[in-house]
Simulated scan of single mutants.
Amino acid sequence: MPLRQAATAAGLVTGYVADAVFGDPRRGHPVAGFGRAAQALEQRVWADSKVRGAAYTAVCAGTVTGLGVAAQLLTRKRPFARFALTAASTWVVLGGRGLAAEGTRMARLLDDGDLPGARQRLSHLCARDATGLDTEQLARATTESIAENTSDAVVAPLLWGAVAGIPGLLGYRALNTLDAMVGYRSPKYANFGWASARADDLANLVPSRVGAALTVASAPLAGGFAGPAFRTWRRDGKHHPSPNAGQVEAAFAGALGVRLGGTNSYGGRTERRGVLGDGREPEPVDVRRAVRLSRAVGLAALAVAVAVTR
């Protein structure tokens, strides 16, 4: 393996370990800073226009990706610097520890029967309206969010870092953050957020399917079976309105032997999704199993990323 390639691979591993041990930086998180800057720009340029939204996406994601390109070029002949910047970038963009922590908190609240606390805490995982959700519905929402974010916050950044280095890590996280900010099918963002949502869909097209395949392979580590995970993924993955989220959610449903999907509410807007899996409704214990499965998929994704690093 060439030295620069080895430096990138070592940086990915080190950044993954840093996220697993320390989690997100407690102060001055660069992703939060990017979000504040993007929000400030949105307030200045928003219009009910796809063209204006596309320009907004290009400026925000292009600036961050450009910084990554500059870092990649400046470290072309400096392998230790390449390693250090790759490790720092990987740590910043990954969210595996935070995702597992939120899933564990939700499982604890549901075990304790603290539905008001669980409804409030769900906002840390997704934008779903939790008002009136019962234990099974909260467990389903949490399991779905863990599955989707395993792909978005762990698998995809690692793969983009492997094939495109620092620009891939930073550019992917910028697009994913923009999608979370403006990529909604709401009256305000249907047009302005269209480009951000579509760009995020394209960026996750391959990683989501790799994540689903790794979920199948990792199913036994969460007390599940690879066969049902594979069959549910191939049968139900296309039933989700997102071209990517349904892939991993369906694989998780089959791996855990539960039923995901159905009707969700987002800020007063009801969205009826297809049913994923043929098992029972998720329970709090399944949230803990989903956390274990998410961690296993993350490790498998790291191994794949190291193997395909360019």
Rank of each mutant, 00 (worst) to 15 (best):
V163M: 06
D152I: 01
A212G: 12
A222I: 07
Y172F: 12
L178T: 00
V258L: 08
N149W: 01
A251S: 10
T232L: 09
A180H: 02
L138T: 03
D134G: 12
Y184S: 03
R209A: 09
L175V: 00
N191Q: 14
V258W: 08
G223Y: 05
D179R: 00
A203H: 14
A147S: 07
L256V: 04
D134M: 08
L175W: 02
G171Q: 05
A153L: 02
S242E: 11
L205Y: 15
A226R: 10
Y184R: 05
L256K: 01
A174L: 03
V258E: 12
L256N: 05
W160H: 06
N149M: 03
A226D: 10
A153M: 02
S218F: 04
A213H: 12
A180S: 14
A180G: 02
G237T: 03
D200E: 15
A139F: 07
F230L: 14
S242N: 06
P220G: 13
A139C: 09
V206T: 12
F252K: 11
G246F: 13
S196N: 11
H240R: 02
S196E: 15
A219V: 07
A127F: 06
P157F: 01
S186H: 12
P220V: 09
R234T: 10
V258A: 08
L202F: 15
P207F: 13
H240F: 08
G246L: 12
A174Y: 06
P228L: 08
L202H: 13
H240C: 05
D134R: 02
S208K: 04
R128F: 06
T177S: 14
P207N: 12
V163H: 05
L178I: 00
G183I: 03
N191V: 00
P157A: 01
T232S: 15
L170N: 01
V216W: 11
E249R: 09
T135P: 00
D200T: 09
A153S: 14
N244F: 04
Q137W: 05
E144T: 11
N191D: 14
S145W: 07
A219Y: 10
T131P: 00
A222H: 09
E144Y: 11
Q137P: 03
A156N: 02
P241G: 08
A197R: 12
D152P: 02
R198Q: 15
A190R: 15
I166T: 08
A222G: 11
W194P: 05
A139Y: 07
E249N: 10
D129C: 11
V206D: 14
K238D: 06
G224Q: 05
L205Q: 14
T177R: 00
W160I: 00
E148M: 06
A203I: 10
A195F: 10
